[in-house]
Design a protein around this nucleic acid. Sequence first.
DNA 1: TAATTTAGTTATAGAGCTATTACTAAAACG
DNA 2: CGTTTTAGTAATAGCTCTATAACTAAATTA
Lengths: 202, 202
Amino acid sequence: MRARKSSQDRKAEILATILDLAFEVGPAHVTTGMLAGRLGLTQPAIYKHFPNKKDIWHEITNSLCARIRENLRQGATANDPPLAMLKQLVLGHLRLVTETPALPEIIVARDPGSDLTEARQQIHAAMGEFREALRGKLSDASKAGHLHHGLEIGDAEMLVFGVIQSLVLRLMVTRNPTLLEQDGERLFDLQLALMKTEGNPL
Amino acid sequence: MRARKSSQDRKAEILATILDLAFEVGPAHVTTGMLAGRLGLTQPAIYKHFPNKKDIWHEITNSLCARIRENLRQGATANDPPLAMLKQLVLGHLRLVTETPALPEIIVARDPGSDLTEARQQIHAAMGEFREALRGKLSDASKAGHLHHGLEIGDAEMLVFGVIQSLVLRLMVTRNPTLLEQDGERLFDLQLALMKTEGNPL
DNA sequence: TAATTTAGTTATAGAGCTATTACTAAAACG
DNA sequence: CGTTTTAGTAATAGCTCTATAACTAAATTA
């Protein structure tokens, strides 16, 4: 019986650790035993802080969705030109993924039980709002004449989202989050330069 | 004791079914029981055809890698202009994913045991060759002056791969492979039009 | 047609995971 | 300081999954 911590501290530790483990072994394969082991506890100790595993994911979900939407609000309130706000949205999201590389793992996770089903659905919903926000900024930019006319907004959104996806898949394969933001900014600027009205930008 | 089939037929059935299930529930969550159930057999029947689960994935891996590389060769042998060959590579890969939507699931799968580890590694290797091939075609096109000079080949590769990734993630979220090829061709053409030397292409 | 092979069955060992129960001792509180 | 609360433990029930063993009957082969 060692190192007894306050419930609040321990809960926070558990939530942070489940995200670490989710990135390492995949969200669906994080066990209560692993979680406890990493915290130097026995497996049933987890159940002093959460009634069941699903509820741990529930809190993770709320926190991640909140952070996705926080980024969304930042992009929405500023009064910059639409393409600057678009860049803020994209780089903000890449920063979130860099800080929490478990996020894309959760997005593509499959789970046998229903522990992660709610998490996945909620995060998909928040990501849907993110894509809507991208679309909104692209639409504003297009109306302001900043993009090639004839460029469909839906297609532009797919291309911009593709920049993010390309980087995120590389993260999932290499397990290395460090290059995301750096390469992200360069690629985003490039993709946008290609979509802008003014001629040869390179 | 019903419907006894030849070993060859049954093996093929098992391989086809594990891919179906991998798309439905995720590769790591396909159980021998599920597999047998879908084929109208009992769970241990699977072990009359494969010594263990890992070996089923091993055969799946070989078959998928072969198909990835087959597409690669088609793109390599033709004598078309480099950007036409690039398009062939990309659309060929999207066709493969449409026919076998479990492929991206395997690429991002995490498994607790080591059943899928080899599969994932081998497929990552084949996908690395695919990206190398994209890079090669883009390099040829660039040298022939078909692309904006100043466009880094590595960046161009990320953007083209991003088109694929954007579509693949949508597939994983919507579970609907039907739109891949159709939208794929349009988005690829668009991305390439933006990267081409000749001015405003829209 | 009789003997052999083998695709299939039932039963079960053994491992890992979630969650509960009963107990223990460190904090918090009066 | 004594009582209460609660973060922790050990033990274990119950479930699911992989794989093996022993057996059975449908095909194949002699």
